[in-house]
Design a protein around this nucleic acid. Structure first.
Lengths: 185, 185
DNA sequence: TAGGTTTCGTATCGATCACTATGGATAACT
DNA sequence: AGTTATCCATAGTGATCGATACGAAACCTA
């Protein structure tokens, strides 16, 4: 998983995987069928072990603004963990791919779209609860938040520290409309 | 250039380049020495022909906030031009690379760092001209703006329209402190 | 302990990578 | 016109890709 995270799907060779896992090629193919299946296994593992902060943030019983704040701060942490590759596997895994790996690139794109959709869903919930103004465009803002997280992923890959990412998250949050008074019945 | 832009450095094979340029391999090597040199040629061409908006925005004699607005809106346009690959070559070219292509990845990273530095320089100028508050951290905000642009690049690659990118740019701009009154002498 | 079976690592498969040597066709000069 | 020289596309180089066939070793059964 770390190799795919660091080098992306195509640039990670079986020789690297073999050395890292201490397995012979037939063992790898017995266990994972082929490289593509192995990558998908790594994706689900990444989703389960590294991305929990996102679900936690979006499902926490807190005001919308606080949920988004937790989401961005969580990303700042997750994208800069010591001993782990910088950024997000969903971004680094295959941003640009050869025609043969188009299926992998599309799958990662689907993960990113799903993240954006989850944010939009949380924002819509916030709007329903009057946490957000009525004229507020849920889809547009979700695209902004998801985009900022993708940008943080690249900044992390370029060496940004956890502190720098936290500040970037805080700055991004300033674009959110200020907490609104609950509109009473 | 379009091939590298679309598929990235490593995933673009000489066979694809050969077909696209209508040249035989020896012609390519006579003209460009090797693949790496060809890619660097494409990089400088991209910088000259597609990225002019950035220099224009940062050097225009306008208030700082307006300069940043032009920068982000220009990115929205440049990253979603019909007939061109989505996003920015500096991001898509080699975000994740094999160990052999580390030099290329480092060069692209240097381009991204240079963009961020240019933004920081413009912000510092704005601070000196009292366009921005004194406590304002130029470096942090430059990292945010550069990060947002990188994020827009990924959103564009994921199919975001020019309008959607423009809205994202507008949203990001809201994080900038409001225009300050000039502190008179 | 002998035989049969299964497992497992080495050595290699065809395909493709970036790159280049060579033969044939063209051009140039006397 | 004849001879030489120059160019240039085809064909192929070693290396590496993802994926596997085969021989040896180990193990279970008789």
């Amino acid at each position: 998983m770390h190799l795919f995270w660091e080098h992306g799907y195509e640039a990670t060779s079986l020789a690297m995987l073999r050395e890292a896992m201490g397995l012979t090629p037939p063992q790898i193919y017995n266990a994972f069928t082929d490289k593509e299946t192995l990558f998908r296994k790594a994706l689900t593992r990444y989703h389960e072990t590294e991305i929990g902060f996102a679900l936690d943030a979006l499902s926490a019983p807190v005001p919308t603004r606080e949920a988004i704040r937790r989401l961005l701060q969580g990303a700042a942490e997750a994208y800069s963990r010591p001993g782990k590759p910088g950024g997000c596997l969903f971004v680094s895994g295959a941003l640009a791919a050869s025609p043969q790996a188009q299926a992998i690139a599309d799958e990662l794109k689907a993960y990113r779209k799903a993240s954006e959709a989850a944010i939009a869903e949380r924002l819509a919930k916030g709007q329903a609860a009057s946490d957000l103004p009525e004229g507020f465009s849920v889809e547009s803002f979700a695209k902004y938040i998801a985009g900022v997280m993708n940008g943080m992923s690249i900044q992390a890959r370029d060496g940004a520290s956890a502190d720098e990412l936290r500040i970037m998250a805080q700055t991004a949050l300033a674009a959110l409309p200020p907490e609104e008074q609950k509109r009473g019945a």
